[in-house]
Nucleic acid binder design. Structure first.
Lengths: 344, 344
DNA sequence: ACATTTTATGCTCATATGGAGCATAATTAT
DNA sequence: ATAATTATGCTCCATATGAGCATAAAATGT
């Protein structure tokens, strides 16, 4: 970077990993604890932890071209080192490079550009070099889990605050634009599109209901964050890491439809109910069992192993495995998820 | 980059633009001519132009953190400088960072990591500082234009060569995998999924029917490129630029379904037939006129201006404009494209 | 043995979507 | 007038899928 030798600002290119596993019907994501002073200069940052406190962050490592033949291999390498996990499916998400992503930039630090990746693993004890931990990803997005019905936080916190935000709009066009977005993201009559996690996060962010917004050096207007609301709107993360997480969640939910990603989160053999529970955990919605199986069968995605589950009580479930051949047979092998498309 | 002062390899972060316009029913993409010696050391590169010849490349510029607040703004800035065009819609595609993307790396050059962007514009004379030119994007992908039916190059060149490639597979599992991919990408009975442009390009690349594969420093195996076939498989581009283009094409085709992107390629008012022709040009397929309009109407995407087209012959068409309000009303406003999903 | 619980399965039905085609109207060029 | 070209209304049908009813199979508990 900085081809001219001048005082050109440096660029640091790194890799961020959203590592996902599902156990006991809860989707988990890998996070590390970092001292906030590692991340930010001690400027005023609203109610965020300051000084020596720790914040959750996604594992992040520099990209080392001499070691890493590709970006993806680089990410695999150091995440596997860090955690001792074997990464299964890995996919590039998005590259984040906004000014002041990392607040240290304001103090003369380099611009930190980060290529975000989604990685799927089987959850296992962490044996690597780092001190990472598994977190329930709905702790970061409590409005995204609809498995027990519409989360109360939506009516209790989100809607009232967003309605106020709509009302505060400067002019009428802006007000209608805001109202439309709120309706699309959190409307009662509208359908809940499980894939639009990023839209919803960004709406809450813009409405200053997410504490990370306080840190945002790009936002010129001085609207303070609603700390009261923020306490109910999930665990904050360092920098823009929750945005990266929201991106990952949307991508994963979307891809479940037409790629057999779930099987990278499951053991080699599993019952159909286990499979359904994993899909439900990720998509945040309950599924209709018969229809789910109808689609699995139609897609030829699984085949029986002939064995039965080491049973609890009730009729023992048959064990299935993923039919790898389906990858050569079908164009879009995915598990059945309510499609929700095009509300109107 | 290169935080340790050692002989650590440098990383150069740049931005690549796929700038798309549609005129006269042909989708065009902006390319620059570069001397190949700017791009590659004069090593053996099969039948590719060597030495002082020129190759087409996507506009590429370094990312300058001190000037560019975000990656996207950086891209807008220098593409607008280069071309004098006003970019409408801009979207990040993917970040490319494989070793030897740029062959100069083998001679000690930096690793060139490039963030690819899709940009939509109205085609206009180029007034900027650079010497860019508009190219028909189907010149790069002749197998992607199905508007006049299945392109003869598929039966004439693609299928025979791919069938041979399937036959050459080392073992039986590999052979079946290859056969499956060929069937999915170019099968006769399978449906043609307009979005899978990248899959198809990568298949041809792996089968060594694309001359750019000759340059690929990552490919260990020494299979030569089929130059004979390559002559019929579109214009080559520098480096991995055709891969970036294929990524853009797939993304754009996909997004047409659920985002009103077409209107960023059209003048403020247009006839419904013009609109349809642009969608057809991009998707590479003919559409059923009545159904297309049925969906437009149902979606409330356009409204009549009251004026009629300055007519050629035939009944004069009414002029329409995009209804911006639809963005606040509907979740997924897109134009009707045959969905093709899930074959089987 | 029998009820209860839990899971698996088969089947039906209503609805939404969209692909395809027929028919007709409106306008201009020749 | 006739042909050509474009616009428009309407029907029909296949498919996908959301939702529900009913029943079978196996294990646990009494």
């Amino acid at each position: 970077m900085g081809s001219g030798g001048m005082a050109a600002q440096q660029t640091a290119l790194g890799l961020s990993a959203v590592t996902v596993a599902v156990t006991n019907e809860v989707p988990r994501v890998l996070a590390v604890r970092r001292m906030t002073h590692e991340l930010a200069t001690p400027v005023q940052r609203g109610g965020l932890p300051v000084g020596g406190e720790s914040a959750l962050a996604l594992p992040f490592g520099p990209f080392q071209p001499e070691r890493h033949r590709t970006l993806e291999l680089g990410l695999r390498l150091w995440v596997e080192e860090l955690t001792g996990l074997k990464l299964r499916y890995v996919e590039q998400l998005y590259t984040f490079g906004d000014r002041f992503r990392d607040p240290r930039e304001a103090a003369g630090g380099p611009r930190v550009v980060s290529v975000g990746y989604l990685a799927l693993v089987h959850e296992a004890p962490l044996t690597g070099t780092g001190e990472a931990e598994w977190c329930d990803w709905y702790d970061f997005f409590p409005w995204e889990d609809w498995r027990k019905g519409r989360p109360p936080v939506i009516e209790g916190i989100v809607r009232p605050r967003l309605d106020a935000w709509v009302f505060q709009a400067a002019d009428d066009w802006e007000r209608r634009a805001r109202a439309g977005r709120v309706a699309q993201c959190f409307g009662v009559d509208e359908q809940w599109d499980i894939e639009r996690t990023l839209d919803r996060y960004e709406l809450l962010y813009e409405a200053r209901l997410i504490p990370e917004a306080a840190q945002d050096g790009c936002l010129a207007d001085p609207q303070p964050v609603d700390e009261e609301a923020a306490r109910f709107l999930g665990r904050p993360m360092a920098l823009d890491n929750r945005r990266i997480l929201a991106t990952a969640m949307g991508r994963l939910r979307g891809k479940l439809r037409y790629r057999p990603l779930v099987f990278d989160l499951l053991p080699p053999s599993f019952t159909l109910l286990q499979l359904q529970r994993v899909v439900e955990a990720l998509s945040g919605k309950r599924l209709h069992k018969q229809n789910f199986r109808r689609l699995l069968q139609a897609g030829g995605l699984v085949e029986p192993t002939g064995q039965l589950e080491a049973t609890g009580r009730g009729r023992p479930a048959e064990l299935f495995r993923f039919r790898r051949e389906v990858l050569h047979e079908r164009v879009a092998p995915g598990v059945g998820i309510p499609t929700v498309r095009v509300g109107g």
